[in-house]
Amino acid sequence: MQELKENNHLQPAMPACWNEETKPHKFCPGCGHGIILKALGEAIDELGVKDQVVFGCDIGCSLLSWDFFATDSVQTHHGRTTPVITGMKRANRDIVGIAYMGDGGGYAIGSQHLFNAAVRGEKITIILCNNCNYGMTGGQMAPTTLPGMKTETSPYGRDVEETGYPTKGPEMVAAVAPEGAYVARGTIANVRQLKGFIKKALENQIAGNGISFVECLSSCPTNWRTNAKKTWEFVEKEMAQYFKVGELRTPQVKEG
């Protein structure tokens, strides 16, 4: 195997900024994190910013990416990735700060950080994986759990009368961020588009325009207890029906 690699006969198809030594990655089979991080990796490669990147990951499944990239990386506490990357960027404006988190980290325990980072227009890039539940802790209801969806803490299905409707994060960020924000929702069901969104989110930070936020619709077959077909159907159809994919905010082009 090593020989094949060295002689360039077998080149694993992975972004150059990935840390090859920590692959295969630690996520469950069928998990969407790997696809999101591939899109992110390709975007970093294309922009050639590997050495400026500080990749921050949250607690929850996203923490399994703490050694994912061959870039400076920081794993923080649950919900606290946004403030850690914010603090870095405020102290050193030359870095490309990426805060990577799940829906729990962004919309529940760290929602005040996401909201206020958006209001202040922090010049960082936040990538949030929305898989409709808390994966690492065993499939509890998340802010993004769809109405009627069964989880460990909503075993009879999410009752919106009791628990409200799923959080629409990009819509919230788009509503409060000042001019210069880039806000989009992509999906692992359309990787090319997702990579484009993530790349723009990095470019927007590098240009110093404002906050850049991309939510990624993702899969969790382990906790959803779904097979491949049903997993894909859920991501492509059910999630996308509630969470509309597309760009919500793009910065206005500055007049020359």
């Binding site: 920081v74 914010t86 870095m88 405020r90 102290a91 050193n92 206020n116």
Partner: peptide
């Protein structure tokens, strides 16, 4: 010098940690 007024003390603590990670005295 710089200052950031955060949304709460959790954030003030963690943004400071981000600052010191980049080698700035915070």
């Amino acid at each position: 010098k710089r200052f950031l007024q955060t949304e709460d003390e959790i954030s003030a603590g963690f943004t400071m940690l981000g600052g010191v990670m980049t080698g700035r005295k915070a």
